[in-house]
């Protein structure tokens, strides 16, 4: 059984937002809404500052609080790869999942249902990469099966120093950022 995850090399990411545009185009995201975005994280004290540029989205957590709190069963873990998805026709728009997500990765689509990144599961099921990964001009984004030790994502995680976002929230995010 596959377990999908994403590995993003922050040393290569330049914050060009191609991933954001690709997502909007592929998934028809309405104007003013984002399923993915760029975060510029600056730490340190002047003049020794360090900036990490990250392409962020739903972390498709292994322990997803958005799924656990959904009263309608609309938010669910997809049988393929453990991807966290929303059945739009089951969602009542109660916003519990928005309250539950420590990454604020969800939003209410103008049509009323909760929406978020799907890891482009419709493309993945056809053997393609998610749109954001496919267009990245610096090849900093990688998608694949974390359970396969020979996949690019597994090899990168085994060989490079990495971190996830808010590991202390305890949701086991499935997107890693290489330092």
């Amino acid at each position: 059984m596959a377990r999908y995850g994403m590995v993003i090399d922050t040393a290569r990411c330049v914050g060009c937002m191609d991933c954001v545009v690709a997502c909007k185009t592929e998934n028809g995201i309405p104007e003013g809404y984002d399923r993915d975005w760029i975060a510029y994280d600056t730490t340190g004290a002047f003049p020794t500052l360090h900036m990490e540029i990250r392409s962020e989205r739903c972390n498709h957590c292994e322990d997803p609080p958005c799924v656990y709190c959904c009263p309608c069963g609309a938010s669910h873990i997809h049988e393929r790869g453990g991807v966290v998805l929303v059945h739009h026709d089951k969602c009542s728009g109660c916003k519990a999942c928005i309250a539950a997500c420590p990454y604020d990765a969800r939003f209410i689509h103008p049509e009323g249902y909760a929406d978020k990144c799907t890891f482009c599961i419709h493309r993945v099921e056809q053997g393609l990469e998610p749109a954001c990964v496919a267009v990245c001009p610096t090849h900093c984004m990688h998608f694949g099966d974390l359970d396969d030790p020979n996949s690019t994502v597994s090899r990168l995680l085994a060989s490079r120093e990495q971190h996830t976002l808010l590991p202390e929230a305890g949701t086991k995010p499935q997107i890693w950022y290489l330092k």
Partner: peptide, 15 residues
């Protein structure tokens, strides 16, 4: 110091 800036603009979520 930490400064986190995001390009996300989702209504009800940002700012």
């Amino acid at each position: 110091m930490r400064e986190l800036v995001s390009t996300r603009t989702n209504p009800m979520i940002d700012p």
